[in-house]
Design a protein around this nucleic acid. Structure first.
Lengths: 179, 179
DNA sequence: AGAGTCATGTAACGCGTTACATGATTGT
DNA sequence: ACAATCATGTAACGCGTTACATGACTCT
């Protein structure tokens, strides 16, 4: 499931412009997927060539034309095929954790700072998810997805608070040994 | 922190061949990073050109030469610089969750199957982490990293068990509506 | 007999990011 | 004044995967 296919999926939910699709990525998928304009617009053009979607240009006053895309029946079939394949395993890349691996090369204060920043970011995301009042999107499912993100962030928060001493102690020892 | 830099980091911990570095990725980093031979070997060659590491060829009987790499002081400095930069945000790409977003396009049994498979995979990973008897790697830190993976997998497991009904109910309704 | 481990590498290719280019409107 | 929002796109580039190529040894 590359970005192209995901854009197609979003168009099964509602018609949208490239700009709006980007917002769906930010608002509803940001916890487990992301995409830039540089990948969305070419994806849309290519799928138009493939006959999977069609875009209607809408003139606007002052702004450039808006292209509202709709999925075609061929596109719907293509997306159904994608849903039949088994999902490949998650790809995760956490620089934060990679850096933690080398905590004995950092000063204790540097490590503490990295963890504090991480916790700050987590707190922000958790607050965002909790303050989200309206369940837009398709109700139950988007609650499920938001809840998923929330559960992961909270679990990480708890783990870091309870176990940061493991890396911080290591750094202290390495630091003391260097003296 | 690209794969190249991470390989460099691993060489601050111990001398290693490309093959052994791959194993470090699999054994210690698999929860939050991965790399293929096709990225590791070129990384090693390029860092050799840069003077960050040096490889000593060791002849072996029957097998091709083994190249054991060590980090140079220039390489160590380069890695320290990388550790000073602030980590960029995690990149996550979960096809499983992306598919869940479209649960109303799948049959209830398909969704149940996807979730069951996901839970099976989680159980396997959790068991692996719990059955890991020896704390190899640098003690505290690798316990921290393993514990992190464990905490995340368990949190996901709990969330899925408690909330799968949200997506499964949605699929049932969509399915009933289609009749 | 076949799978798995040890061992290194290259080539093609695709995917996606980043930066650039443009520009009006609206809110602070 | 300045940032943000709306709106679309291209070009260059890098990163990394996948598949291919080679080959012996060991365990089941």
């Amino acid at each position: 499931m590359d970005i192209r296919t995901l854009c197609l999926g979003i168009l099964t939910l509602r018609d949208a412009t490239g700009y709006e699709i980007k917002k769906v990525f930010e608002d509803e998928l940001s916890h487990f997927y992301e995409a830039s304009f540089g990948s969305i617009y070419p994806a849309l053009n290519r799928m138009t060539d493939d006959g999977w979607i069609i875009g209607k240009a809408e003139a606007q006053d002052g702004r450039p034309d808006k292209k509202v895309y709709s999925i075609t029946s061929a596109g719907r079939m293509a997306f159904m095929d994608a849903l039949d394949k088994k999902p490949r395993k998650d790809r995760i890349r956490s620089e934060f954790l990679a850096m933690m691996m080398f905590s004995d090369l950092m000063t204790p204060s540097r490590i503490a700072h990295l963890i504090d920043e991480r916790l700050k970011g987590l707190a922000t995301k958790i607050a965002e998810l909790e303050d989200c009042p309206d369940d837009r999107g398709n109700g139950e499912v988007s609650r499920f997805l938001r809840g998923f993100g929330h559960a992961m962030y909270v679990a990480e928060q708890n783990y870091l608070e309870e176990n940061r001493h493991l890396v911080e102690a290591q750094a202290l020892m390495a630091h003391a040994a260097a003296d």
